[in-house]
């Protein structure tokens, strides 16, 4: 039993052979994750800012956008971009399709989290800032947003980790990231060791982030 476990899951020969492939996959995964974090959080903050300007023509589409991309499974969005897009003349690589679909998902959640932060800044602060002569946009940018962002950090960290983990979905649309490379290696070697390596690769990337999010939660805990 133990020998079989070692042979199939921790086979050093197989591990050595596919180490470069898993390493290349890690670089793609990290590249994709970094792009998604910047695009998703940036877009989410921008949308929350625009919504706070309280122009109906802007805030309605933003709410609908955030609702749709919080309700749809990212894999469904990804598959529509990648497999249905070409039918109407929109062609993109698996990498771009993953980047786009996960960024939109993260942006939708981030917008809601930032928005909740903006709402939680007391009315009195708006009035005080305005009465000192700051314009509406200045009040939002210099007084309200800095506090809103601070409040948003713990839930945002958790959500960002949850969404970036989904880069594994890219394996479905032929992106050569960790999981796809591991699955290919597993098929060639008829051995599960590459999948063990994939799991370890994800742990190497995400365990520090999860530990960091625990620390953030304590550090930024709202004190009443």
């Amino acid at each position: 039993m133990l020998a079989r476990l070692q042979e199939n899951f921790f086979n050093l020969d197989v591990a050595w052979r596919y180490l470069p492939s898993i390493g290349e996959g890690m670089i793609v995964t990290i590249h994709l994750a970094v792009l998604i974090v910047f695009t998703g959080l940036g877009l989410g903050l921008l949308l929350a800012f625009l919504r706070a300007l309280q122009w109906r023509v802007l805030s309605w589409p933003i709410v609908i956008f955030a609702d749709i991309f919080r309700a749809l499974p990212p894999l469904v969005v990804l598959i529509i971009f990648y497999f249905a897009g070409p039918f109407v003349g929109i062609r993109m690589s698996g990498f771009v399709a993953t980047w786009l679909s996960l960024s939109l998902a993260l942006a939708a959640f981030a917008e809601e989290i930032f928005w909740a932060g903006i709402l939680s800044v007391g009315r009195g602060q708006w009035e005080a800032a305005r009465s000192t002569g700051l314009r509406y946009g200045q009040t939002l940018g210099y007084v309200v947003l800095p506090q809103a962002v601070r409040l948003a950090i713990p839930p945002l960290t958790n959500r960002t980790i949850a969404v970036t983990k989904m880069t594994a979905l890219a394996s479905v649309v032929a992106v050569e990231e960790i999981l796809a490379n591991a699955a290919t290696a597993q098929a060639y070697s008829a051995n599960t060791t590459p999948l063990t390596m994939a799991a370890i690769a994800y742990l190497v990337i995400f365990v520090p982030l999860v530990a960091f999010s625990r620390w953030i939660e304590h550090r930024f805990a709202w004190k009443h």
């Binding site: 983990k165 989904m166 594994a168 799991a199 994800y202 742990l203």
Partner: peptide, 9 residues
């Protein structure tokens, strides 16, 4: 551990 592993993996 299971918060770090992508569900698909």
């Amino acid at each position: 551990l299971f918060r770090s592993l992508p569900p698909l993996v």
